[in-house]
Design a protein around this nucleic acid. Structure first.
Lengths: 351, 351
DNA sequence: CTGTTAGCGCCTTCAT
DNA sequence: ATGAAGGCGCTAACAG
C-alpha cells in the first residue's frame, strides 16, 4: 500500500474506478462531468474519489488534451512594483478561472526573454502574457499556436492582442498641467525610447508643448540608463547645464525616485524651487512631502484585462483579428507642482 | 505537414529520429545525454532537432518521470512589496537551475491557500515554497511527498525546512534603540499574533523593555486589522487614549505606512513630537522626510535561500531532518527617532 | 449508459 | 551502441 519512505503511491483514476466498481473511463466521465454517467454511478465514483483522496494528475490530463492549464507571464522586474501589480492583476483573473500563472522574470534581457518563451513552449502553455522586450519572443510563441497578449507596451510588428495605457494622453495631460502653471523649460527624463511607452510619453510631452506654442528643446530631454542611480546623475548633469529649468517630468517610477532623491540631495524645495510630475503613480508619492503629482496608471486593471482577453481567446469566445485595448490613465494633481512665481525666467534660487 | 490554421503540428522526438535516421530511443538518448549514443549519431540527431526546431514536450517528459520542473510558490499578497521581493529572490534561483515558478496568491485566505496546495499537488510539483497561513496546506503537500520550505514565518507543527528572519532580535534592537533615546512609553502596532513573525516581534519588544527594566504595558499594544486604513485608525485611538506615548513601533510595512499617514494627518512632527520605527524596510522609508528608522530584512536573500534549500532537497544533495535557517535583520537608524527631550513625562505638544 | 481500446510524447528497461 | 516494446495516468472514440 505505501512505500518504504512513507509516501503512499499516488492514487490514480484506476484506483478510484476499482473502488467504485466501474471502469476507468466511467470514472473519468463521472469525475470530469464530460460524457454520460448514471447519477448513482457518479455519486459512487465521487464518494470513492473523496474517500481515497484522489487528486487528478494534471500532467497526464495535459498530455492527453495536448494543452495545460498554465499561462506564462513574462515580465521584466518583479521588484518593480509596477510589474508586481501587473502580475497580481493577472493572477487574480487567471486563478479565478482555474488557470495557474507561471511567472518568468527576464530582467530586461532579451536573451532571457527568448529563453523564457522557449520554456513556455516546452510547457505547452495555451497562452502567455508578456511585457515585451523584443518582437521575437512573442513571434516565436504565436508561431507555435500559443495565444499571446502584450501588456503595457507593444512591439510594432507583433500580431497579437495588447492591453496598453494611453501614454501619449497621460504625458500630454501632465505636461499641459505644468505649462498652464507657467512652466516653459520642463526637463524630460526617460530611460528608453524604443518601446511604445517611451515613444508615447515623449510624444505626449511634445504635443502639449506644441499646443501651448512652446518650442521643443532637445537639450531638455535626458536619456537615462537603467541603473538605479542613473536618473539622479542625469538630472544632476542637466540641472547644472540648465539652471533655467523650472520643472521636471520623470517618465516612469524609477526616474521619479531618482529625481526625488537628487532634488532632496540638492536641497531644492519642491515645488517652490522646482516642480515635479511623474508618470506612473506609486504609494511613496503620496507619503512624501509634498506629494508628487503623477499620471496614475490602472496597473492592476491592465493585468486583469489582459488575462481576461487571453481567457476569451482560449475559450474561443473571442476569435476576431488581433485587438489592442487602451486604458486611460488619470492625472493626480498633488503638491509637487505649482504656479511659477514672478521671475518666470530667473534661475532657481540656490539652496 | 501543417494544419489548416497555419500552426504546424508540433515536431516530436519521432520526427527528429526519422530525420536523423535513427530510432526514437536513440534520439532520446542523444538529446538528453542519458545513456549511450555514438558521437556521430548524437551530432546528427542534434542537427536534425535544431533544423526542425524541436522543443521537447515537458508534459510528456514529466508524465514519464512522474515529476515536473515546476515549483509552487504560495504567497499572501503580491502587491505588498515584501512578497514581491520574496518571489523575485525565489524566481532568480529557480530560473538559474532550470525550474519554473508557479505563483499562487492566497490573499491571506486559508481556503485559498489550501486550494492552492491542492492545485500544486495536481500539477505534481516536486517542491513548494510557502509563506504559510495555516499548517494544513504545508502538511497536505508534505504528506504527498512534496518538499516544502516555509519562508518568513513558520507554522509550529510543521515538519519542513524553513528560512526565517530573526524577528525577536530585530524588534529587540529597534526597541532598545528607542529606550536608549529615553523613550519609555512606546506604542506597539501589530496586525497578527498568530505567526512566528508577530509573536517574535512582540517578544523582542518585551525583551528590550525587560532588559531596560521598563514595565510592559499591555495597553500600549494595539492589535490592528488587516485593512489599509486600520493602522491609522488604531493609532489614532491609541494616541487619544494615551497622550503620553512618545514613540511608535510599527511591526510591519503596512502598519508603518498607516502610522506615517496618521502622523502626517495629525501634523505631528517626527521625530520632535513622536519617534517612529518600522519593522521591514521599504524604499519609501528613505524617500520621506525624515527617513524612517527601520529593521531591514534581507527579503530577496530570504527568497533565494529558500529556493536554494529546496533545490538541495530536490537534488538529494541535502537529506537530513528539517532545518530552520535564521537570517539576521539589520537596524537602520534614520531620522525618525531621536532623543527624548527634557520633559520626559510631558504629553506631546499639540499641533 | 458503460467498457474496451488506443494513444498523447517521452523515456527506459531489455534484448540484440 | 542501437532498436523494440511497454507504460507513465488519463480521456476520446467506438462498440456494445
Amino acid at each position: 500500500m505505501s512505500q518504504v519512505d512513507g509516501v503512499p503511491r499516488r492514487v490514480t483514476i484506476g484506483d478510484v474506478a476499482r473502488a467504485a466498481g466501474v471502469s476507468p473511463s466511467t470514472a473519468s466521465r463521472a469525475l470530469t462531468g464530460q460524457g454520460y454517467a448514471a447519477a448513482s454511478v457518479k455519486l459512487r465514483v465521487l464518494a470513492a474519489a473523496d474517500r481515497l483522496g484522489y487528486v487528478p494528475d494534471d500532467i497526464a490530463r495535459s498530455l492527453k488534451r495536448r494543452t495545460s492549464r498554465l499561462v506564462g507571464v513574462v515580465i521584466s522586474d518583479l521588484r518593480n512594483q509596477f510589474y508586481a501589480d501587473l502580475a497580481a492583476g493577472i493572477e487574480q483573473v487567471l486563478g479565478g478561472a482555474g488557470y495557474q500563472m507561471v511567472l518568468v522574470n527576464d530582467d530586461g534581457d532579451a536573451d532571457r526573454e527568448l529563453a523564457g518563451a522557449r520554456t513556455l513552449l516546452a510547457m505547452r502553455v495555451p497562452g502567455a502574457i508578456v511585457t515585451p522586450l523584443t518582437p521575437e519572443a512573442g513571434a516565436l510563441l504565436t508561431a507555435q499556436g500559443v495565444r499571446v497578449v502584450e501588456v503595457d507596451r507593444q512591439m510594432a510588428q507583433s500580431q497579437c492582442d495588447a492591453v496598453l495605457v494611453d501614454s501619449e494622453h497621460g504625458a500630454r495631460v501632465a505636461t499641459s498641467h505644468l505649462l498652464e502653471l507657467g512652466h516653459r523649460r520642463i526637463a524630460f527624463l526617460i530611460d528608453e525610447l524604443e518601446w511604445t511607452t517611451g515613444v508615447g510619453r515623449l510624444a505626449g510631452y511634445k504635443a502639449a508643448l506644441r499646443a501651448a506654442r512652446v518650442k521643443f528643446d532637445q537639450r531638455l530631454v535626458a536619456r537615462v540608463g537603467f541603473g538605479s542611480g542613473d536618473a539622479a546623475t542625469a538630472l544632476s548633469t542637466l540641472l547644472d547645464a540648465r539652471p533655467d529649468v523650472t520643472a521636471v517630468f520623470a517618465a516612469n517610477n524609477l526616474m521619479a525616485s531618482g529625481v526625488w532623491q537628487e532634488l532632496q540631495r540638492r536641497r531644492l524645495r519642491v515645488p517652490r524651487d522646482i516642480s515635479l510630475v511623474a508618470f506612473d503613480d506609486l504609494p511613496w508619492m503620496t507619503m512624501v512631502q509634498p506629494a508628487v503629482s503623477a499620471v496614475s496608471q490602472p496597473v492592476v486593471a491592465m493585468g486583469s484585462r489582459a488575462a481576461e482577453m487571453l481567457l476569451a481567446r482560449l475559450s474561443g469566445e473571442f476569435d476576431g483579428p488581433p485587438k489592442t485595448e487602451w486604458l486611460t490613465p488619470a492625472f493626480e494633481r498633488r503638491g509637487s507642482t505649482r504656479k511659477l512665481s514672478g521671475q518666470a525666467s530667473g534661475p532657481r534660487s540656490p539652496a
